[in-house]
Structure formats: structure tokens, C-alpha cells
Design a protein around this nucleic acid. Structure first.
Lengths: 233, 233
DNA sequence: AACGCATTTTCACAGGTTCTGTACACTCCA
DNA sequence: TGGAGTGTACAGAACCTGTGAAAATGCGTT
């Protein structure tokens, strides 16, 4: 996961609330009270989504929206508006400027999260093929199923995500920290050594000889690599 | 999905908005500012739906509607009108000419999508077969009936929609959040745990042994999957 | 407006599975 | 041989799901 959301909101109470719930749901959240900072930061590191209060002193959210939509690199990042109930006009204006959804204040945290997730899901790029296969293993991400030498192998969710991630970038070495970030996602506090444990369990499931792995190789001092096996000579 | 929608709308802001949201929702969208082009194009490749602005310079949407309805090949394609707020008259006229729904401007994207989907659902051809069946259960979406091992089983609306959705994508794992989005729709914000409750009730109805489901499987840490059962060996 | 019924939603708990830190054994390389 | 890096076993913690029941909601009828 590891998706970051930029929040533009000048009311400290609300922004704290929003930040808290976003983070509790596993998102990264950065809160801004000032329109110009949002865009500057976003240029360096585009977020997955903007949550913009329509009314912010010093240039309003509508203005930010307009600028984002005309911004080459940021025009595809979805935007959700936070609007006060009454301002029907603003709302419509926001939607016409290309916002993707709006939430009227006051809002329930659950609604906030539901809308955020729904918009993110809509924008999620129609990803890589659901099935990737190698010589004797097949990874079906859509079905969350793993086949090894013809047999269905059972995996836990984390095992599957880790294997899937590695197998989708064959040949590349990933550090434990990187894997924690990519697979575990949320800013959990997990020891890098846990990765070892999962690697072992995956090897037990996919490798004919877990002691001499063909696929999931250790790169000493660096991390792990999923390797496309060369035919046994 | 892969359904295309033709949009007749001369206001560039609005048409961009509409196009963007239709595409974000997975539809193909083609925008026209000019009535005659719409019909010409539609003759070559009929869309799944027309979205017509009632007021367009150079022959209005009402006129297009009339011509479409009298057009042999296109008379069955559903039509939704976009109307300005006040013009009650236009609205009535549009519906009398055979439009299937209307949306008053200004509108929320959510409303647009909801209406588009609703109309498409109404017009859905047997292209997505109304009946899907497995070894010992038959789901008849048209009749909203469920048959289990020959017996008619009664279901509530939500139970049926959930089962239908899962069964139409057999083998795929869906998270609770995804299911809420797909089955419950846009208006409600319920706990993901509610999905569990419905799954249980569906199992009680379709599974011979609800404790060991053959069809509706739990994928721990991920969600649920409707599985095509393999013959018992 | 009030009522009853069916459906939907929430909640809390129990039981089971999965996750994770730790400790220690092992391997590799200088 | 020593030290850093890696593999493994294990047990408690954390998490997830199923379940029963109650509360809330919706809906048509009286």
C-alpha cells in the first residue's frame, strides 16, 4: 500500500482528525494549512490523492484544484473536496473543475475512508497481468492462488504478497527494508528479520530443494532476489 | 466492462468533466459538440448509451433524440438527457420522446455515474447472461431467483446482489471494501464486517455444509472468493 | 401517525490462525 | 578464527473470522 495523501485544511481540529483516521487506515497523511506549500511538496513527491478544503485563507482549495489540474505531472492525481454543507455553489464549481468526489462537513470518519478508498480504487491503474508464471510455479494474484509443479499450494496473505512482489520484479535485489515497505506497507514497526522468516516459508512452498533455492535467492549483505531459473544443465 | 458512451455537449468544461468521470469509471467516452457527428459515428459503431445535452447550438438534443428513436439500428440504445435546472418543460418533452432518464445540471459525478449505470443495467442485454449456473446452484439475475439443488431458495436483495457479484467473477478474490463498493454502492457506509454477516447467510443458503463451503471461500487476510468447485474425488 | 414485519447493520466474544521478536545455530568470507 | 550476515524453532502477541443476538432501519398497512 504505502499511499500518501495530502490534506489541505486550515482548521486544526479537523485536520488532526483527518490525519488520524487516514493514518489509522494505513495511509501516509501530510497536512497543510497553506495552499502554496501543498503544490510545492507535491511536485517533489506526488501523493496518491489530494483532500482539499474548499475554503482556506490565502487562496482557496478551488484555486489549488485548478492549478493541479493544469499541472503536467499532477493532473492525474485524484482530488476530493471537503466542503461545508451549505456551499452548494462551491461544490458544483469544484466538481466542474475536475474534482473526483466531495465530502460535506461534518462527515463521519467512515465515510471519509470509504470515499478515499473508492476513489483510489477507481484510479488504480489496470495493473499488470494478474497471472505470472515461471517454469514450475504459477502465481495468480487475482485469485490469490499459487500453483507449484501443478499442485495448489496454500499460502498466508503475507507470504503471497511477498512472493508476488518479488516475482513481479524478477532479477532485482531488494533489501529487507525495501520489502517491508513494499509488502507490509503501512508504517508498521517490523524487524527486518521477519523477512527472513517469510523467505524461508516461501522457499518451503515453492522450492523443490529449499536448501538450494532456484528461485528465491539470498544476496548476502544486500537482501533477496527472485531469479528466473536457467534450465538445469 | 468496455461500454462506450457518446456525449453530446457543447460546453467544453462540462464535457471534459463528464468524459473524465465516465472514463474513470471504466467506460469509453466520446464527446461531441455537434449533433450531426454523433449520429454519423453511432451508425458506424453504436454506443451503449447516449448522453445528450438538451440545448446544443445547431439542432438541439431533443432533435437528436427524435432522430435516434426513428433510426432502425439505434432505436434501442438508451438515452439520458442533460438539462438545465429550470426547464421542466424540456424534461417532460425529453421523456415523451423516449429518453430513459434525465440529469439536471449542475450534477454530481456520483449522480451521473449512478444514473448511467442504472440505465445500462435496465437495458443490459443478455450479453451478460442473466442466468449463471454451477454444479448445484443456479442464479437467475433477471428473475432474482436462486435455485439450490433444484429447490428455490429465498434471498434478500442484498444477499442476492452479493452472491451474484461474486459468482459472476468466479475465482477472483475480493476484499470486503471492494465488495462494499461494488454491491452496496455509493450511498452507504457500512462496516466491512457486515460483509461477513452476508457471507454467512449466503452460505447457509447455498452450501450443503456451511462450515466447509465449497463455493464461497474465505481467503484469510484478503477477503472472499467464489470458487467453481472441482468434482469431489 | 402508529404499527408490525422483514431486512439490514452493528456489536462483542470466542476460537483459531497468522505474525513477529528472540535466541541460537549456522554459513560465508576476510 | 572472528565477525557479520543469514537460517530456524518457538511461543506469545496480534489479528482475523464466524457467530449469535440485539439494535436500527425501512416499508407497507392499518
Amino acid at each position: 500500500m504505502n499511499q500518501t495523501i495530502f490534506v489541505l485544511e486550515d482548521d486544526a481540529d479537523i485536520s488532526r482528525l483527518v490525519q488520524h483516521h487516514l493514518e489509522a487506515a494505513g495511509f501516509g497523511a501530510r497536512v497543510y494549512a497553506n495552499p502554496s506549500n501543498v503544490i510545492a511538496d507535491a511536485e517533489r513527491q506526488p501523493p496518491s490523492l489530494f483532500l482539499l478544503d474548499i475554503m482556506v485563507p490565502g487562496g482557496d482549495g478551488l484555486d489549488v484544484c485548478r492549478r493541479l489540474r493544469n499541472h503536467a505531472a499532477l493532473s492525474t492525481v485524484p482530488i476530493i473536496f471537503l466542503t461545508a454543507r451549505a456551499s452548494e455553489n462551491d461544490r458544483v464549481l469544484g466538481l466542474e473543475l475536475g474534482a473526483d468526489d466531495y465530502i460535506t462537513k461534518p462527515f463521519a470518519p467512515r465515510e471519509l475512508l470509504a470515499r478515499v478508498k473508492a476513489v483510489l480504487r477507481r484510479f488504480e491503474r489496470p495493473s499488470t497481468p494478474s497471472i505470472i508464471s515461471f517454469e514450475d510455479i504459477v502465481i495468480d494474484a487475482g485469485a490469490m492462488q499459487l500453483k507449484v509443479r501443478g499442485e495448489l499450494a496454500t499460502t498466508t496473505a503475507t507470504e503471497f504478497r511477498l512472493l508476488d512482489y518479488l516475482a513481479r520484479h524478477p532479477g532485482r535485489v531488494f533489501s529487507r527494508d525495501h520489502l517491508l515497505d513494499a509488502v507490509w506497507g503501512d508504517a508498521r514497526f517490523v524487524t527486518p528479520r521477519s523477512v527472513d522468516v517469510y523467505v524461508r516459508r516461501i522457499r518451503e512452498k515453492i522450492e523443490a530443494d529449499p536448501e538450494n533455492p532456484r528461485y528465491l535467492k539470498t544476496v548476502r549483505g544486500a537482501g533477496y532476489r527472485f531469479e528466473i531459473p536457467r534450465p538445469v544443465q
